[in-house]
């Protein structure tokens, strides 16, 4: 029986990452987050789904001598889900890639994306329209979170 905390699907990736970028911005910042026995509720049929998988995130910063910074933000999410009521299997395999060019390093960016939890049978799919929110201050400290969720049935 699935009776753990219920989270919206993107709680998986909404754990706020507070990172400090290296002082010389020319390297990757990589974070791997395991997703273990996390329960979400499929809003499309009310079924609880047990999720396991990984979230891989990479951020790259390259600052040119004239002070312009090229930033890239990548995330890859792999999830396997098991329906607590129906026994249905679900899979999510999503990635997103965004880039910015800014003067200096300080910036605040929001990127819309979609994460689809695909049923491997007759159960309905679920789509989370999420907003990735990244804030980098003038000291190079990075915060990343999911600022918005909108669950839809496919």
């Amino acid at each position: 029986m699935l009776h753990r905390k219920k989270f919206a699907i993107l709680i998986l990736v909404s754990a706020v990452l507070a990172l400090t970028a290296p002082s010389a911005f020319a390297q990757a910042m990589v974070t791997d987050t395991p997703i273990t026995d996390t329960i979400i509720n499929n809003k499309c049929n009310g079924e609880d789904i047990l999720l396991n998988g990984t979230l891989h995130q990479e951020m790259n910063f390259n600052t040119t001598p004239n002070g312009n910074t090229h930033s890239s933000f990548d995330a890859t999410l792999h999830l396997n889900g098991y329906g607590g009521t129906s026994g249905a299997l679900y899979v999510a395999k999503e990635s997103t890639h965004n880039e910015t060019n800014t003067k200096g390093i300080a910036q605040e960016q929001s990127f819309g994306t979609k994460i689809k939890l695909v049923s491997q049978g007759p159960a309905p799919d679920m789509v989370d329209r999420a907003t990735l929110h990244v804030v980098i201050d003038s000291n190079g400290s990075v915060k990343q979170d999911i600022s918005k969720h909108e669950i839809n049935c496919k």
Binding site: K103, F111, T113, R129
Partner: peptide
Amino acid sequence: SDDYSSNNDDPSADVTVELKSD
């Protein structure tokens, strides 16, 4: 459709984003 935003003190914003559609 999807939405994106960029806040900075630059006179321009230069972004590469993804639009995912069914």
